[in-house]
């Protein structure tokens, strides 16, 4: 028994353990803080290079946010042609994805038997896993030729916004459907049962009770999908062309400005095409992609926070 008391004193052992524990805690904290460093890095780098861009004598901030011609060689830096490309593609994509995604979600959540779900759910998940560059290949080799067959090769250009928009739409269908389905299945069964009890049919229960109850979740999902479409790059680069659709308000007809059949580079497409050449630092081209990147970042950030606010403000808590 006396031997035990000659062992190393208990206190120092505990102390050692605390020190290493502290070290581990600190390194774990550093891991967590790397995410903050990433955000700071993004904001700092985008901001710094954008500032250099706007300090360039060729560029004026006012022209950037109001100009409708993007022609770096001629010293015209108006962002609107690129935003137009992004917006057209996003609108077409949402026109494809919202009806199909939402209807799929209602079917999966309200109608489908477990067997049908077991077939369709994984298929949608496979769609999520396919790299976007493969979708880009699909847009160029399948969608564009088909559209040119349907509408005529003289109407639809080889590079066009419609093909890119439809394929981006296909790409975000799973996103819309899975987020909407989550929202729909979060609606408690008691609501459905109450409606059935009043004599409503399945369709009436789905469309007039469940969908309105889940509307905030569905809206949030659609906004997320929109943000995804805005940031989508490869499909847009490959299918919608390598030149921005410059226009002059009042001179070009709206039928040209808003035409889905014409080419129209998006913001992401411009960044990729400009960066894929040999880009040297501290040139106006190099700085310009950061200014556009910052615009893109702010747009997606805005959409993502909008989605979160929709959820926070309008979510109904069910017991």
């Amino acid at each position: 028994m006396t031997e035990t008391s000659t062992r190393t004193p208990r206190r120092s052992l505990g102390g050692q353990r605390r020190v290493s524990e502290k070290l581990i805690l600190v390194s774990l904290f550093v891991c967590g803080a790397i995410s903050i460093a990433t955000t700071i890095g993004i904001i700092y780098e985008l901001g710094k290079e954008s500032l250099l861009f706007f300090q360039d004598p060729q560029v004026s901030f006012w022209e950037y946010i109001t100009g409708t011609i993007w022609q770096p060689q001629a010293g015209s830096f108006g962002i609107w042609p690129l935003i137009l490309g992004t917006m057209l593609i996003t609108v077409i994509a949402l026109t494809v994805a919202i009806p199909i995604g939402l209807a799929s979600a209602i079917y999966l959540s309200e109608y489908a038997s477990p067997r049908v779900r077991g077939f369709f759910k994984p298929a949608l998940e496979v769609l999520v896993g396919i790299p976007t560059v493969v979708f880009g290949f699909f847009a160029v080799t399948f969608m564009t030729p088909i559209l040119r067959d349907i509408f005529g090769a003289d109407v639809v250009g080889f590079f066009n916004v419609l093909s890119a928009g439809i394929v981006v739409g296909i790409l975000i269908i799973p996103l819309v459907s899975s987020l909407s389905e989550d929202a729909l299945s979060a609606v408690p069964d008691s609501l459905r049962q109450a409606a059935y009890g009043l004599g409503a049919s399945k369709l009436e229960v789905s469309l007039r009770v469940v969908v309105p109850a889940a509307l905030s979740g569905i809206a949030a999902g659609i906004v997320i999908a929109m943000s995804r479409a805005v940031g989508e790059t490869m499909v847009v680069t490959l299918a919608s062309g390598a030149a921005p659709r410059n226009f002059v308000l009042g001179q070009d007809p709206w039928s040209y400005i808003l035409s889905p059949f014409e080419f129209g580079q998006a913001m992401t497409g411009y960044i990729v095409i400009t960066a894929s050449g040999d880009l040297s630092y501290n040139t106006i081209d190099y700085n310009s992609i950061f200014a556009i990147g910052l615009t893109l970042f702010l747009m997606t950030l805005g959409l993502n926070s909008l989605s979160r606010r929709i959820v926070d403000r309008y979510r109904q808590e069910y017991e």
């Binding site: 995410s35 990433t38 890095g41 940031g231 960066a275 893109l296 970042f297």
Partner: peptide, 27 residues
């Protein structure tokens, strides 16, 4: 602070991949 880290991670998950490319290029 910790809830800020959490929000920040959720935000980062929604940043388009091309922005990470620009971060990579610059840094």
């Amino acid at each position: 602070f910790n809830s800020f880290i959490q929000t920040n991670i959720n935000n980062l998950a929604g940043v388009p991949s091309i922005i990470y490319g620009m971060l990579g290029l610059a840094v």
